[in-house]
Design a protein around this nucleic acid. Structure first.
Length: 491
RNA sequence: GGCGCAUUCGUCUAGCCUGGUCCAGGACGCCGCCCUCUCAAGGCGGUAACAGGGGUUCAAAUCCCCUAUGCGCUACCA
C-alpha cells in the first residue's frame, strides 16, 4: 500500500464544530473525513468546540454533536469530555491563551490597536461602498502616533487588536487543490482580538492548531479563503502551517448550501428517521470520495481501510436522498434477523415470543428501506385471531374459483407435513403448486386463498414465512377457522 | 464589485497528473421486460454527460488560454 502525504502515520487532525446547532450533515461529513484520516493513519482525532460565540452556543447542542458523532462511530482521542494533553478543548476556556498570543503579536509589531468603533467603521464602509469603492479597513489606527494612542487609552476608549497584514503573496498548500496563491493586498487588517478581550475566529483557530500540534486541517471549502489569513498568522507566529484539505460543501438538490429548507439536515434527524449509522457514513463518504473502482458499499472498517485523500474529488456535492435510501437498504441486508429485530423491537407486539418476532421481522424486512418502515409493514396479521377476515379478504375468498375444494386441499396438504422449518415450508408451497396443476388449476387458485385464509388479509409476506410462523398445523387450523367464518356468513 | 475554488449522464462518480485502449465505464433515479398468491424485493435490458469557444498535437474528456455558469470569502460570526 502506498503512502501519501495525507496518510502520514500519526496525522493529528481536528474536528472543530461550533455548538450553535445540532450536528449538520455537512459537518458530519467533515468530521468523517477527519476521522478517516486519523484512523487510517494511526493518528489522533481531536474534538474541539469553537464556542466563542456565547450567545449562540449551548450545552444542548454540544451534547447533540457528541452524541451524533458517537452514534456514527466517529470517536475522538482528545476532547472536552475525555481531556488530553493539549486542553482545554473548548475555546471559551482558552481565552487567556489567545490574548497572550495577541499581546505577543502586538509587541512584535505584527498587530496594532484599533480604536475605531463599529459605528465609525460602518460609516466609513458605507461611504466607500456608496462611491463604488471596495471597502477594506483603511488602517486609520495603524497611523496613530504614540501621543494619540496614549490619549485614547487615557480616555478609556476600548480597542480591538488588528493583525497587520504584510505585503506579498501568500500560498495555501491544499492537498486537494494544489497551491492556492493570493496576494496579501486582497486581505484587510482583520481583528484578532475583540475590544472585549475575546479572541476572534482566525486567531483562535491558528493558536489552537499550533498548540494542539495539528498536522492536517481538513474542513469545508468555505474556509479556503480564510486559510490565507491563517497562513499569515502561522507565519507571524513563526510556526509552519499544517497540511490543508478544503473539501467541497454539501449542497441541497437545488444547488444551494444544504439547509433547513431542504428538510432534515441534522444527523439526529436521520437517526430518528431510521437510517443506519453505517449507511449514513457510507453515503457521506461516497459523496466526493471514490475508491477508484466500482465498489460502493463499505462497512465503517472497510472505509478506514480503503479511504485515501487522492480519491477525494474537488467538485460540488449534492445530497441525494434516493441514493442514501438505497445504501441504507444495502446495509440493512447485512444485518441478521436477530440484529434487525433488536433495532425495531419497540415496534413489535410484546405478546410475541422472541423467535416469533424474528420470523415476523424476517418476513417483512425486504419491504423496509429504513428502520422506521417497520411501522408500515403488515405485522398485524401475526396477531390477528384465526378466522378473522378483513372485508377485502372475505370478498376475495368468496369470489375465488373452486374455493371449497381449494381450502380442503390446503388443509390436507398442510397436514401431510408435521414438522416445521423453511425447507418444509418451501416443500409445502411446491406441493400446492403441483396439486393445483394436477387439477388443471392455476397456482393462484390455491395460493391466493392460502394467504387470505391464513392471514385474513390481502397483503402480507411470502407464504413460506406464514408457514414458518404458525407451523403447518397452525396454518391448517387457521384455514379451518376461516372456513367456519365463511359458513357462518352464509347463514 | 474584488479575490478564490469548481465545472463528465437529472444526481454521486471512473477516466484527467502519465494525450490514442472512451462513438466515455459504474451506481442511484427513471422507463421497459422477466419472475410472481399480494405488496415488495430480485434478475435482465434501456435512457442519459466530457459547460462553450479558441489553441497545441497525427490524435484531447485528458495539456494551454479565454468566456460562461455555480459556489465561497470579502463581520469586533464561525
Amino acid at each position: 500500500m502506498t503512502r501519501r502525504d495525507g496518510d502520514n502515520p500519526g496525522a493529528r487532525v481536528r474536528f472543530a464544530p461550533s455548538p450553535t446547532g445540532r450536528l449538520h450533515l455537512g459537518s458530519a461529513r467533515t468530521a468523517l473525513f477527519n476521522w478517516l484520516v486519523a484512523r487510517g493513519s494511526g493518528g489522533d482525532m481531536i474534538l474541539r468546540l469553537e464556542d466563542t460565540d456565547r450567545e449562540r452556543s449551548s450545552a444542548e447542542f454540544e451534547r447533540d454533536i457528541m452524541d451524533s458523532m458517537l452514534w456514527m462511530g466517529l470517536d475522538w482521542d482528545e476532547g472536552p469530555d475525555v481531556g488530553g494533553e493539549h486542553g482545554p478543548y473548548r475555546q471559551s476556556e482558552r481565552m487567556d491563551i489567545y490574548s497572550g498570543y495577541a499581546r505577543r503579536l502586538l509587541e512584535e509589531d505584527r498587530a496594532y490597536r484599533c480604536y475605531c468603533t463599529p459605528e465609525e467603521l460602518k460609516e466609513r464602509k458605507n461611504a466607500a461602498v456608496g462611491e463604488g469603492r471596495a471597502w477594506r479597513y483603511d488602517r486609520k489606527c495603524l497611523g496613530l502616533t504614540d501621543e494619540e494612542r496614549a490619549r485614547l487609552t487615557a480616555e478609556g476608549r476600548p480597542y480591538a487588536i488588528r493583525f497587520r497584514v504584510p505585503e506579498g503573496e501568500v500560498t495555501v498548500n491544499d492537498m486537494l487543490r494544489g497551491e492556492v496563491k493570493v496576494n496579501a493586498s486582497e486581505i484587510d487588517d482583520f481583528i484578532i482580538l475583540r475590544s472585549d478581550g475575546r479572541a476572534g475566529f482566525h486567531l483562535a483557530v491558528v493558536v489552537d492548531d499550533i498548540t494542539m500540534e495539528v498536522t492536517h486541517v481538513i474542513r469545508g471549502d468555505d474556509h479556503l479563503t480564510n486559510a490565507v489569513r491563517h497562513v499569515l498568522i502561522f507565519r507571524a507566529l513563526g510556526a509552519a502551517p499544517p497540511m490543508f484539505l478544503h473539501h467541497s460543501l454539501l449542497m441541497g438538490p437545488d444547488g444551494a448550501k444544504l439547509s433547513k429548507r431542504h428538510g432534515a439536515t441534522s444527523v439526529s434527524d436521520y437517526r430518528e428517521m431510521g437510517y443506519l449509522p453505517q449507511a449514513l457514513i457510507n453515503y457521506l463518504a461516497l459523496l466526493s470520495w471514490s475508491p477508484g473502482d466500482d465498489r460502493e458499499i463499505f462497512t465503517p472498517g472497510e472505509l478506514v481501510e480503503e479511504f485515501s485523500i487522492e480519491g477525494v474529488s474537488a467538485g460540488k456535492a449534492i445530497f441525494d436522498m434516493d441514493k442514501l435510501n438505497w445504501l441504507n437498504r444495502q446495509h440493512m441486508k447485512m444485518l441478521s434477523d436477530s440484529e434487525l429485530t433488536d433495532l425495531v423491537i419497540d415496534h413489535l407486539d410484546r405478546s410475541l415470543a422472541r423467535d416469533k418476532m424474528e420470523i415476523a421481522v424476517a418476513s417483512v424486512r425486504n419491504g423496509m428501506e429504513t428502520l422506521a418502515d417497520i411501522a408500515s409493514q403488515p405485522l398485524d396479521i401475526y396477531v390477528r385471531p384465526a378466522g378473522e377476515l378483513s372485508d377485502k379478504a372475505a370478498g376475495e375468498l368468496v369470489k375465488s374459483p373452486d374455493i371449497e375444494e381449494a381450502l380442503d386441499l390446503l388443509i390436507s396438504t398442510l397436514e401431510k407435513h408435521p414438522s416445521n422449518g423453511m425447507a418444509t415450508a418451501e416443500r409445502i408451497v411446491d406441493d400446492l403448486r403441483r396439486e393445483a396443476a394436477e387439477r388443471g388449476w392455476k397456482a393462484k387458485t390455491v395460493l391466493w386463498p392460502f394467504r387470505l385464509a391464513v392471514t385474513g388479509s390481502t397483503v402480507g409476506p411470502d407464504l413460506t414465512y406464514l408457514i414458518l410462523f404458525w407451523g403447518p398445523g397452525g396454518c391448517a387450523d387457521r384455514v379451518r377457522a376461516t372456513k367456519r367464518t365463511l359458513e357462518e356468513r352464509d347463514e
